[in-house]
Simulated scan of single mutants.
Amino acid sequence: MKGKRKFSLKEIYLMAYNFLLFCIWAITFIVSVFSFNQDSSYRNGWKIPFLWSQIAHGVMWMDVVHAIFKVTKSNWFINAVQIMSRTMVSFVVWGIAKSNCVGWWTPMMFFSWSITEIIRYGYHVLNMASEELPKWIVSLRYSSFYILYLTGFAGESITNCMTIMRIPLSSEIGIKLPNMLNVAISIPFIIRVYTLTSAIYFPDMYKHMIVQRKKHLSTNPILPSL
């Protein structure tokens, strides 16, 4: 009879961290469903889902910290790029545009984000707590991006474009001169640059996920390679 597996402090911490984010994203999904049913006109600007996404993405920056200090084996730069993209939408874009940037694409974006992260963080918890996971769980973890990453990126891009259309470049939103740092920052300009940059690097990020899928499903995958 095998003895009970003992977990290190690092493993306990990571399981607690991943479970916390699993719960936050589960709540985000639930409030998104509620908002979808109750605010079909988008007049309220999806305040509650955006609030929960801000909480989630704020906590998710610990993914980058973990990678930098080798607590996890993930690539800190890839993590930072992915989290930064959503952080821009959750904090900056929605922060200045509110209901002007929401529409039919908003639930698509939130459902894509939340389902993706529920799968990802749930997988990490199960993977650390179990000696071996069912193949379908591993396949779900590394195959769901084929659709969810596309729909999530589409939702982010439309949100950004709607903001660009409704907030002119000449808008004075940002940090104006004169100030102590003698630096002027135009938020509308930053959103335009970020939107263009995201579109340019999207193919590379998508290819990276395909490579990761092949790497983790290379041995007897339950689903055929796509």
Rank of each mutant, 00 (worst) to 15 (best):
P107W: 15
A154E: 02
F22P: 00
I137Y: 06
Y201R: 04
L223G: 07
D204K: 15
Y146E: 10
F19H: 06
V64M: 06
S112H: 03
L169D: 01
D39W: 01
S143C: 15
F22V: 03
A199R: 12
E11M: 07
T163N: 06
L14N: 11
W61N: 06
V64H: 09
M88Q: 09
P107R: 11
N127E: 12
S90E: 05
I115R: 08
W52F: 10
P134W: 15
V102R: 01
I27K: 04
E11D: 11
K6S: 10
I118H: 05
D39T: 00
I68S: 05
I78S: 11
T163V: 04
L140E: 01
W136S: 14
H124L: 12
A56G: 12
L223R: 07
S130Y: 11
L21P: 03
I137C: 12
K176V: 09
I191K: 05
T163E: 03
F111T: 06
M108C: 13
L226P: 14
N37M: 08
A184Y: 09
V138P: 05
S130D: 13
I175W: 00
W52R: 02
N79C: 07
W136V: 09
I190H: 04
P178Q: 00
F36A: 02
L126D: 02
I115T: 15
V92M: 13
K98D: 09
L14M: 10
L150D: 07
V59S: 05
M84C: 12
E11C: 06
F34T: 04
P107C: 06
S114C: 14
I187Q: 01
T159W: 00
S35P: 00
I137W: 13
R166M: 02
F153L: 02
F202T: 14
M109N: 07
R192E: 03
N100L: 09
E156H: 08
I55H: 03
H216Q: 13
V89K: 02
M108V: 10
R120M: 11
Y149L: 05
K2V: 11
F189Y: 04
V93F: 00
F91A: 04
A16C: 09
K214Y: 13
I137F: 08
Q82C: 06
F77E: 05
I167A: 01
P178M: 00
V193L: 13
M165V: 01
T151R: 02
F29D: 03
K176E: 11
V71K: 04
F36H: 02
M209R: 05
G155M: 00
V59W: 07
L21V: 08
I30E: 06
N18I: 04
T72H: 08
F34Y: 09
V102P: 03
M84G: 14
I48V: 10
N220K: 14
M108K: 05
I185G: 03
Y121V: 05
W104D: 11
I173M: 02
L9G: 08
T87S: 14
N160Q: 10
N160D: 15
S218A: 11
C23I: 14
I164Y: 01
K176W: 00
V183F: 06
L126K: 07
M88W: 15
M209K: 12
N44D: 08
A199W: 12
P221N: 03
R192G: 08
A199C: 09
L51D: 12
L226C: 12
